[in-house]
Design a protein around this nucleic acid. Structure first.
Lengths: 221, 221
DNA sequence: TCACTAATGTACGAACTAGTACGTTAGCTA
DNA sequence: TAGCTAACGTACTAGTTCGTACATTAGTGA
């Protein structure tokens, strides 16, 4: 999240639409992630900005649209990260493990994003459904998974007949739950799923799980 | 959720503390699950009850305590369900699959519970942490998993050296994500994870995944 | 049956909160 | 450099929302 923390005016200008807009988005992201859609306070966002509430309405129109803009940018970030993904040179098993690990890392590094997605689901995904930018956006990772799966299935290495979307769901489940539910899980079971000391443990567990699933010997269907 | 929908007075009484309390809890569960903690309206809960807002404060003290009571009851329900669990007579593989399927079914049948847990995580699990009833409650399923795992590992059937809490997290991840994130996932990938026609598919996928993970041939650690 | 209290209802207030009307100025361009 | 407009600030309002003061009654036990 391109945080803007400079003294007062960036690039010598007092008035900078792009900077003001970006700063509002930064703070709004934190605030929505902190308190949920209804818990977030427009006044609080404004207060933590170098500008005023007036500007939020000037640039975004309202709280609802601001939240949508926050989601659009957050999804854009993960989209970009996935586009960096380069696993073409790896064998299917290594490639899938790599992909799983990248998903794992991204989720861990963007807890705010996870919270925003949770919040959006509480609200039935109405904002992303209404967003032209986000509707059916899919994910660059999906195409990659598709190719790896095809290669693995062709070579007989992968026995599971699973499609890319379902495999993506499986990988995301684990990564998402670990971050999203860490608080209740921690209280109820006395175990912090995001404990840095256990990071490697869970990362390996995810990879093992996915590979085991894909390569398991199946009874005839 | 013991829904109370009778005409006016149950068991012949106009004033029935237990009934009023239960009815408030029922409606509050729906309202909190619908809109989140801050989105939920105390007035709305009262309106959909046969009693008044005054009673919410009389019985629970406030919105915060009401939400905690809602969580306590919701966790109580899953706790009870898990206590029914009887898999002692099954071999480890069948037992684990059974357990996974029960978790799967429970999550599917209680979307409100899933939403409440999501909401509670947005708020850092502060309510269940403060609740005497819920702190470190654990889960009856955990003991069952522990026993099955021990048996499976002893017999050499299970190769993964995973503990009960982590396995529980793995199973829950899949079940939770499927229900909790169905909305955003549906919009972004055009696939409804809770489509009844696909229920069997995902249920089998979960079992296959867990069993594959537990029984996979491992390279020496 | 009488009195006492748990249970309930009504009406209201104080604080908050999204959103806006109105006024001002920086910075670009002709 | 004059003027025009995008960018910005202040002060306010209308409506909402949690919570409560006060009044009332059902049911129970003596």
């Amino acid at each position: 999240m391109t945080s803007v923390e400079e003294p007062a005016q960036t690039n010598g200008r007092l008035r900078d639409a792009a900077r003001t807009r970006a700063e509002i988005l930064d703070v709004a992201t934190q605030e929505f992630a902190r308190a949920g859609y209804d818990g977030a306070r427009v006044d609080e966002i404004a207060a933590r900005t170098r500008t005023t509430k007036r500007m939020i309405y000037y640039y975004f129109g309202g709280k609802e649209q601001l939240f949508t803009a926050v989601l659009e940018r957050a999804y854009g970030v993960i989209r970009e990260a996935e586009q960096q993904l380069d696993v073409e040179h790896l064998d299917p098993v290594a490639a899938i493990r790599r992909l799983a690990e990248l998903t794992f890392d991204h989720h861990e590094q963007h807890p705010d994003f996870i919270r925003l997605v949770s919040i959006e689901n509480i609200h039935g995904a109405e904002h992303i459904a209404a967003s032209a930018k986000l509707g059916r956006m899919g994910s660059p990772a999906l195409e990659v998974i598709r190719r790896i799966l095809a290669a693995g299935q062709e070579s007989g290495l992968f026995t599971a007949d699973v499609d890319a979307v379902d495999l993506h769901a499986m990988i995301s489940s684990f990564c998402f739950f670990r971050v999203a539910n860490r608080h209740t899980f921690g209280v109820l079971f006395g175990r912090d799923l995001v404990d840095p000391a256990q990071r490697g443990h869970y990362r390996a567990m995810l990879g093992d799980m996915v590979i085991a699933y894909l390569t398991a010997e199946r009874a005839a269907d």
